[in-house]
């Protein structure tokens, strides 16, 4: 039987520089979950369909189960833990809670990682466009309506905030 091949990788995970020896066959989410205890990214199918393992690699959301950990060498990885700590989608997360856009929560980190990319585009989308953008993320609990609501509300709030007059410089 073939021996287990390993390689050392160094990458940035949630802003922190990480060096680890990884089996080359290990996928990224197993590495994040098992080696780094970043259990916020979930495993739902391991064949790239469900989206529960979505993480951000070099600024783009990808399927964590469809990338090898060894490929993360030199890359910048952001998981739901990092996204939370950065506050980037604090408004979206609050709206998910407020709107109850999640039930069991298993798909939720993936939904947020994907929605973050849509929100980052900074444009207003129709509900249909939101549904289409989110179509790679399974949710078995909510029926999607509340997820679309939460994203739509956050999008509109951001738009309103961006149009609000800014306080003059020097004023509190």
């Amino acid at each position: 039987m073939k021996t287990e091949e390993t390689q050392e990788i160094t990458c940035k995970v949630n802003g922190e520089r990480i060096t680890r020896l990884v089996p080359v066959r290990q996928h990224l989410v197993d590495f994040l979950r098992m080696d780094l205890q970043l259990t916020g990214s979930h495993i739902g199918c391991e064949h790239g369909v469900c989206g529960a393992c979505s993480v951000r690699v070099d600024g783009k959301v990808v399927r964590g189960c469809l990338m090898l950990a060894v490929q993360a060498d030199g890359q910048n990885i952001v998981t739901i833990e990092g996204l939370t700590d950065s506050g980037e989608v604090a408004d979206l997360q609050a709206e998910f809670v407020e709107r109850n856009a999640l039930q069991c929560g298993y798909c939720t980190p993936g939904q947020l990682m994907t929605a973050a990319e849509l929100l980052a585009e900074g444009e207003i989308s129709t509900r249909e466009e939101i549904r289409t953008f989110m179509s790679g993320n399974y949710c078995r609990c909510t029926g999607y309506h509340a997820i679309v609501d939460a994203i739509e509300t956050t999008m509109k709030r951001r738009e309103e905030a961006s149009r609000a007059p800014r306080p003059a410089k020097g004023k509190a």
Binding site: L38, T39, G40, I43, T79, E81, V97, L102, G105, Y106
Partner: peptide, 13 residues
């Protein structure tokens, strides 16, 4: 829900 959106849900795995 607050725990889950922060990726802090604790599932068996």
């Amino acid at each position: 829900a607050k725990r889950a959106v922060a990726g802090k849900g604790r599932y068996t795995d």
